[in-house]
């Protein structure tokens, strides 16, 4: 069943001799927005990157444990990472559109998957751009260079680029940290809207943002899971005093 639920069981990760994640067990609910919060260096991004095996790109990374998506463990050796990354898209901290047109950016995923028919590509591109709330702004300049868009538009373009391959899960690594408040607000609206379609996992160090857009919140500290739960609970009645201290701004 395509629920987009992710079950993480005793996940550990080390880069060389440096242990970054310690034995994390956690379930991320499907079709929800889950925010991962924690101070810098607490392993938020690493946890996110384990979810689509981007950790494979680091030569000396060792990942152990299980991550179950759709009933299969994506960490197992036979997992085809290419297929996995089609199901689990990722948006980065800094907008990174390819240096070509808006259209070609969104069509990139479908194209490398072999979709060539112009009509169908047009449809997929439009759908994805609508999904990323960018269509109205760029419909007249689909063939303009992507780098001519504003920073916020570029980030939404990156989201559209992911949506074009119809992922079940969208990972977002501090997607607003390079953007101004107005652009941030648009992305946040977009995240709230996306929740109906897919599972969103959002790393952020902006606590207000986590509170505004997420359904669930996970708090990491020094690579360990401190607490996970409904966002409202975490922010108002955290069980662990460290969580409480962090969300009320006493450290981090």
């Amino acid at each position: 069943m395509d629920t987009g639920k992710i079950e993480i069981a005793s996940l550990s990760c080390a880069f060389g001799s440096r242990q970054v994640l310690h034995d994390i067990t956690l379930t991320l609910a499907g079709r929800c927005v889950t925010a991962i919060i924690g101070p810098s260096g607490s392993g938020k991004s690493t946890l996110l990157r384990c979810l689509n095996r981007m950790t494979d790109l680091v030569p000396d990374a060792r990942v152990s444990g299980k991550i179950i998506l759709d009933g299969t463990d994506i960490l197992r050796r036979e997992q085809d990472v290419v297929q996995l990354r089609q199901k689990v898209g990722m948006v980065f901290q800094k907008p990174n559109p390819f240096p070509r047109s808006v259209y070609d950016n969104v069509a990139y995923g479908p194209r490398i998957r072999g979709l060539r028919r112009r009509r169908e590509l047009d449809r997929v591109v439009e759908e994805a751009l609508r999904g990323a709330a960018l269509w109205e702004e760029v419909r007249d300049r689909l063939h303009a260079p992507a780098l001519s868009l504003s920073g916020g538009q570029q980030q939404r373009l990156c989201i559209a680029r992911c949506l074009a391959v119809r992922p079940q899960v969208l990972l977002m690594d501090e997607p607003c940290s390079a953007l101004d408040p107005a652009a941030t607000a648009k992305i946040e609206d977009l995240i709230t809207g996306l929740r109906r379609e897919l599972t969103v996992v959002l790393v952020t160090h902006n606590l207000q943002q986590a509170a505004r857009v997420s359904d669930h919140t996970v708090f990491l500290l020094d690579g360990e899971l401190v607490e996970a739960g409904e966002t409202a609970t975490i922010f108002t009645r955290a069980r662990d005093p460290r969580t409480d201290a962090y969300v009320t701004g006493r450290f981090g």
Binding site: N52, M54, L57, V82, Q83, L84, R85, Q86, K87, G89, M90, F92, K94, N96, P97, F98, P99, R100, Y108, G109, R111, I112, R113, C158, R161, C162, V165
Partner: peptide, 24 residues
């Protein structure tokens, strides 16, 4: 970042090289 973005979208390393890096 271009390579990362392509890989994160499910491109093989080969595809990332020939469809993103070299065109760029």
């Amino acid at each position: 970042e271009y390579r990362e973005a392509a890989l994160a979208m499910g491109a093989t390393p080969f595809q990332a090289r020939w469809t993103v890096l070299i065109p760029a």
